[in-house]
Amino acid sequence: MNQEKKATLIGLCAIILWSLIVGLIKGVSESFGAILGAASIYSIASLFLLFTVGWTRLKNFPKKYLVYGPILFVTYELCLSLSIGYTTTSRQAIEVGMVNYLWPTLTMASMIIFTKTKTNWLIAPGIVLSMAGIIWVLGGDEGLDISQMMTNISSNPLSYGMALLGALIWSAYCVVTARMAKGINGITFFFMLVAFSLWIKYFFSGIQPEVKITLSSISYLVFASSAMGFGYAAWNLGILKGNSTLLAGASYFTPVLSSLFSSIILATSLGISFWQGTLMVCTGSILCWLSTRIKI
């Protein structure tokens, strides 16, 4: 197996690891609380990244990337981890994770708007299908049920709102930093900033939830940190040295894998309407991706 194939395989492993994150973050938050749990995950993940990806000197960072990159990345990771951590049920955590997976569609839309990326008519049904998929997921067992969707959102507007905000921020990060980074990988530094921000929030929030230290809770913490840290490290290697086109296409199936693994990890049964909505989100994302790659 040549180097490119090995790197591509490692990149595909990153997709598997990321698909575990929603269920694992929820599992950690149930034992450590949303803030302390997230702070612990990113602290340990930072160590993993330090020994795998390594450290990039700050003086090597382009100035704009050093300013905008951390702001967008840290804000997104806070939205991601806390939106899941603040959920009250396992089903809600999986739904919030699905809202976050609007980011591929939003990224393509942002690229078209802000970078004038050429596209075709597939972008319209792609965006519509993705949005409809989220409505379908949040509609509960009935599928397309606006009143039930509003009821679900109103039960925890903070989590759903942060998940949507996170999707918007990550799409901006993907578009804005791609040109600014100039090949510099700041993931280790960014993760340390996320951990630092969460510890500051924890110590000044005044919220000290009961911490349940068990073999199960420690296992969740280690697995979640590994999935976070090694996931980013594997993805970075895959994109740089593997088949980036294949990896980009495969990443759009993450919502399906994430829902599957989360339902197993959190022992939550998901109805047919949820899977229908998940497939709609995936299909919409793929159509958006194809809209910039196929001439019609």
Rank of each mutant, 00 (worst) to 15 (best):
S258F: 03
Q92V: 01
K295F: 09
M150Y: 00
G284Y: 04
Y65G: 09
I21V: 15
G143D: 03
L122V: 02
S31R: 01
S251W: 08
S263V: 00
Y220W: 11
L20K: 04
P104R: 09
F203P: 08
G37S: 07
L270T: 07
P104M: 11
P255Q: 10
K116R: 15
K26M: 11
V67C: 00
N60D: 15
I44H: 09
L270H: 09
R91E: 13
N60E: 15
A195Q: 06
M280E: 10
G166R: 11
S155D: 11
F48I: 13
I35E: 11
C79V: 08
G242Y: 08
I35A: 12
I294G: 05
L240E: 13
F196K: 00
W170C: 02
T87D: 10
I112Y: 13
G11T: 01
M111W: 02
L257K: 04
L20D: 01
G161D: 03
I153T: 03
T188P: 13
G229R: 01
Y232V: 12
G186K: 04
Y101G: 04
I213S: 06
S171G: 15
K241L: 06
S259M: 14
A109T: 12
G133W: 01
F223M: 14
L122I: 05
A233I: 07
T268F: 05
Y76T: 09
C13W: 02
W289H: 09
V176L: 10
I71F: 15
W103C: 09
S40N: 07
L246T: 11
M228T: 12
V67G: 05
L257N: 09
A227M: 12
Q276A: 13
I169V: 15
T88M: 14
T52M: 07
Q276I: 02
T268G: 08
I134R: 01
L122S: 06
K118V: 10
M192S: 14
T177V: 08
S273F: 10
R293T: 04
I71K: 03
K63A: 10
F223C: 14
V128S: 08
F114V: 03
L198N: 06
F114P: 08
L47W: 01
M131D: 00
G140D: 06
W170H: 10
L82Y: 13
S155R: 13
T75P: 00
V137P: 11
M111T: 00
G277N: 05
L106C: 03
A45S: 15
T214G: 04
W103K: 05
T115S: 10
T119I: 02
M98G: 11
Y173T: 05
